[in-house]
Amino acid sequence: MNVPSNVGKSTLLAMCIFWIINFTKDVSMDLAGIVLLSAIPIFICVTLVIIITICPIFWILKKDTISNYAIAKKYFPYYAIVMFGLCLMGVIASRADIYSISFFITVFITTAQSWVWFAKENKV
């Protein structure tokens, strides 16, 4: 499993989604520095979420005879449903504030795409 590559790609994806949604409300030059700096917390968040919630599934279940694809095929649906539920709860709890919405949409799409990248690593 190529975790660093996955985390790198996921961080870029997360940054794009998060700021695209936020820029729909307000685009300002003052935010340019914040956008660049946001790479650090986004990277930390993405790394933690991937290492804590996705990697253990592959680490525990991975065997020579079972491919990443087979694991993703079996467990991704449940993960996606639970993650969507949690993100939806987050959006509702935050009373649909734009930052919260963009954060939770980013979390859902990034984690789902991260699964796709892991599954495609060594397709049988």
Partner: peptide
């Protein structure tokens, strides 16, 4: 919620 992602690797 995830049909698009499912088809991405399925």
């Amino acid at each position: 919620v995830a049909g698009f992602f499912h088809r991405s690797f399925h």
